[in-house]
Design a binder for these strands. Structure first.
Length: 117
DNA sequence: TCCTTGACCATTA
DNA sequence: ATAATGGCCAAGG
C-alpha cells in the first residue's frame, strides 16, 4: 500500500520538525539541528533535507554553519536572500557572519531560564 | 556493490 | 582569521 505524496522518511520528518521550531530571530547550526532531531553526526543530512523540501515553507534562513556563517557562497542568490531574510527578522549579519552568542537558539533558552531566577 | 556528491564539522597548521 | 585535512553519512548514479 502506497500512500500518496506524504511518505516522508521519519528522519526527515524529525529534522523538519526541529527546523520549524527555531524561534523567529534565532539561528541554529546544521549540526545542532541534527542533534536535536536525535541524529548526531548527521549535519549533512540537514542540508540535504532543506534542499529536498525546499518547496515547503520553512524558516530555512535560520540555519547556519557551526561557525555562524551563511552556508551559501558569498554573493550567490541564496546568500543574498538568506541575509535579507535574517535582517528582516532582526538578526544582525556582518560580513556573512552571525554572532551565535547573541542569536543562537541555545542562547534563547538561557534567556528564558534567566527570567525564572 | 562501488563511487561521487554535498545548504557539514572539528582539528590542525 | 583563513585554509587544508580527514571524518562524517545519506542519496543517487
Amino acid at each position: 500500500m502506497k500512500s500518496g505524496m506524504a511518505d516522508i522518511p521519519p528522519e526527515h520528518a524529525c529534522i523538519l520538525r526541529v527546523i520549524r521550531s527555531i524561534p523567529r530571530g534565532r539561528v541554529a547550526s546544521y549540526g545542532e539541528i541534527a542533534r536535536r532531531a536525535g541524529l548526531p553526526r548527521h549535519a549533512r543530512l540537514v542540508g540535504r533535507v532543506l534542499g529536498v523540501y525546499s518547496a515547503l515553507k520553512l524558516p530555512w534562513q535560520r540555519v547556519l554553519r557551526s561557525d555562524g556563517r551563511i552556508a551559501f557562497p558569498k554573493g550567490s542568490p541564496g546568500y543574498r536572500q538568506q541575509r535579507a531574510l535574517l535582517i528582516d527578522e532582526g538578526v544582525a549579519v556582518r560580513n556573512g557572519r552571525i554572532d551565535l552568542g547573541r542569536f543562537g537558539w541555545q542562547r534563547d533558552l538561557d534567556a528564558e531560564l534567566w527570567k525564572m531566577a
